[in-house]
Amino acid sequence: MQQTFYKVIGVLLVIYSLIFGLLTSIPELPIIEESIRNLFYHVSMWFAMVAMMAGSFAYSITFLRKEKIQADHRTEALTETGMLFAFLGLFTGMIWARFTWGAWWTNDPKLNGSAITILIYLAYFILRNGIEDERKKARISAVYNIFAFVMMIVFIGILPRMTDSLHPGNGGNPGFNSYDLDNRLRLIFYPAVIGWVLMGTWIASLRYRIKKLSNS
């Protein structure tokens, strides 16, 4: 019962945010205009990705403490789902940037942060692929994953705040901050984030079950 409950909630919240994200009235801001609706589709992807990576970080710690191989399978499943959200966040951001900034890619701290994040986690999969022994693979990749998560938080959370950026929500640009994010947007944005996190959990649990079956 509990297993179905969160999936239903997740699906409902995602459908709600997809439909009402296009219908809701928005604050009129210069430059960003109608593209502020991307808040519901682009920013929620990154929130979901960080949630997935935080989950995989937690399971890596669990593995190192208890040495249970299931924790490693969960780590891998969550990281894969997180990567999916990272790529979706990257593509939605690139499409937005093409129409708002006129370029697919710019040299911006936020964009660099996301590119580096993707490189870090691609390296994680390369590392995993190279090791035969299952326990050794689990232990070594858990060590790397813990280290990588901390560096990712530093890169996407702290560094962009120290330099100027064109990205909405930075350096006086309208967007995601306490003054601009008014209640109409919040009413859609928060459900979107929760909905996508629940969907991510569902995807990750499916991947985990596939791994468990193919291993036994």
Partner: peptide
């Protein structure tokens, strides 16, 4: 492998 692992991590 070590370069692949270290390169993105050292950027900050």
């Amino acid at each position: 492998l070590s370069t692949i692992l270290a390169l993105p991590l050292t950027l900050p």
